[in-house]
Design a protein around this nucleic acid. Structure first.
Lengths: 352, 352
DNA sequence: GCCTCAAGATACAGCGCTGTAAACTTGTAT
DNA sequence: ATACAAGTTTACAGCGCTGTATCTTGAGGC
């Protein structure tokens, strides 16, 4: 059962292959009668165009690669969904590449050893540095995500992490908390994200006239929620006085919640806990989690906008976009209204 | 900056394009000296083979489609990860197609309007029926996942849902529970999965000599954890006596947990709660969730095994494989050891 | 010294499609 | 009637690669 080709349809319909192609593509200048005849032949034979052949001649694959550390990490799976849907809207398909944050895999993403597979790449780097990106990157259009490396040569989208962290601190301060901890510095492996968030945390305190207490910066063994729980438990045991925790991400916040529960401390009454990323995790914890909420939808649409512009021929230095963030307020912080206004970050700036 | 082609390399190296191709493919019969020269030219020019062209001539794309309802549902994202990793091991790339369980999208998956995009499809159907699958399915190799439609003509992989549900019931019975409820029948929309699990639940009770109480089958408005919580709350308010709940999935279990907490009922002391799918959700709830655990890794490897066999030419009627399941025991069920042995389901049957 | 054979290298066709340009067919203005 | 524009259809090259068949070369056997 050989696959039906354009020529087969053409033969049956008694026209040239190009006319069949024109019908397939809804080219306007085809006589109605012919169009009908060709369509009948297509239906009769069950013709389906061979995408690979089309790609070879057009040079467009209609696919983009999404390279992320972990498919099944809630933040990335939720982001992937947004990106996949936005891509579908623009008639692109997405192929997901999992790097596990490994340098080797991240190199592979850029080295892109086989060309012509995708029209562009959306890449959330973890380990690789800006220099390596600039060096390894070929001419495949690329948009970077996250707070990792951001070489000036590449397009890049993220939220304002520093501002968001400062706002998170302000939010807790506005509820009367004064001993606010930051949870999330993994020893010997300070990621860019953690760095920015920690900076914002300190900035928020300073702006409020408070003196950041180094003893309130809690470091964690690894990226598991167990380790973060352990860090909080240890701090509590040391007798560190804490009435609020800003966490590097929701996983860490979940660990903090457990540690508080184990120590018999009520959340949010005793300690307010604030997560980051607004993932589904926050809906399932007890209490549910207040969390810094990157606008994932804006992240996705901005990334695709930049990427498609590059695909469509834009050449220029790297553009850096900040997309909005908010705060999803749930049970892990007090429900008293904050007196402080909550700025929402700069709006995304769609280019003209 | 034109892309470097095989002919460019050939010209620089002073050989035929085929020889370059042979070097690229590590074809053994190439003289060492020539190989060196060609490799030097490849490196110098930064040649990367054009996959699309290769595909056109070989007819293989090296890609498989994974069609699932929701990318960001924990079960599917975890399963996707397994499948992506297993596929990578076999040198396939995965392109993820999200159907949202919509009939139209599911049709599109099978109609596969553009051929030559993927070598095979792994599909977890929700809405589409067996007949439609059989009717719409072209010749692209296909493996079905889940408890949905399973036409005799297609390969199919799942766990033994009936057995797993019966075992879950037995597990609770073994801990002395007698008023075990089933949570998860969404009104007017009984999925195949729910159906099977409900059947196993009833079977488990009957096998233990108990009479299933219809009042213990709790129906839920929709697939959210809020709705499931509401269903449990309502049952409790009606005064239904319950000491254990087997839930259709972890989301529903999370809702049940909340409802119990709200009603002041301790889990697992008052009511034991058992989820399904062993997703990450279960790690973040309080208490953490005991859950029926499909062997996702086996699911993935079996699906890929069947699929690659088809891709490699196997023609035959649909094969149906059952992969193992277990029970991940956490805090939402009592920690007393069960006296009943916990069968683990049939092992996966790798074909010869 | 001649023949055979395997390894090494190549020429060439063609995978299935679309872009280009050219050919042909009307309809309309002159 | 004639020219010309607009609408319609087609021939053909070629995207970049690999499979097949073929050719070349040098070693080994008699």
């Amino acid at each position: 059962m050989k696959r039906v080709r354009l020529v087969d349809v053409a033969e049956v319909a008694g026209v040239s292959t190009k006319t069949v192609s024109n019908v397939v593509h809804d080219y306007p200048h085809v006589a109605p009668e012919l169009r009908r005849r060709v369509q009948a032949a297509i239906d009769k034979l069950g013709y389906r165009p061979n995408l690979t052949a089309r790609r070879l001649v057009t040079g467009k694959t209609g696919m983009i690669a999404l390279a992320i550390p972990e498919i099944d990490h809630p933040y990335f799976s939720e982001l992937s969904r947004q990106i996949a849907e936005e891509a579908a809207r623009r008639n692109y398909r997405v192929i997901i590449e999992q790097t596990l944050g490994k340098l080797e895999a991240e190199h592979a993403v850029l080295e892109d050893r086989e060309a012509g597979l995708v029209d562009g790449i959306i890449f959330h780097p973890v380990s690789i540095g800006a220099l390596s990106i600039a060096k390894l990157h070929h001419d495949t259009p690329l948009v970077l995500l996250g707070e990792g490396a951001m070489p000036a040569t590449s397009d890049h989208v993220m939220i304002d992490n520093v501002a968001a962290a400062a706002e998170a601190v302000q939010f807790l301060l506005g509820q009367g908390r004064r001993r606010i901890a930051f949870l999330g510095v993994v020893e010997d492996d300070v990621t860019f994200s953690t760095d920015k968030r920690l900076l914002g945390y300190q900035q928020g305190l300073i702006e409020a006239g408070l003196d950041p207490d180094p003893g309130l910066v809690l470091s964690v063994q690894d990226f598991s929620s167990e380790a973060s729980g352990e860090a909080v438990r240890a701090a509590l045991e040391r007798g560190v006085s804490i009435d609020g925790i800003v966490c590097r991400d929701d996983k860490f916040a979940a660990g903090a919640l457990r540690a508080c529960a184990a120590a018999g401390i009520s959340v949010p009454d005793g300690i307010a806990v604030l997560g980051w990323d607004d993932t589904a995790i926050g809906k399932y914890t007890t209490p549910s989690l207040t969390s810094v909420a990157p606008d994932k939808s804006a992240l996705a649409s901005t990334a695709l906008e930049l990427l498609t512009e590059r695909i469509d021929g834009f050449r220029g230095v790297g553009r850096h976009r900040i997309v909005p963030h908010g705060l999803t307020i749930r049970q892990s912080t007090p429900s008293v209204p904050s007196e402080l206004p909550m700025p929402q970050g700069e709006p995304a700036v769609p280019s003209a």
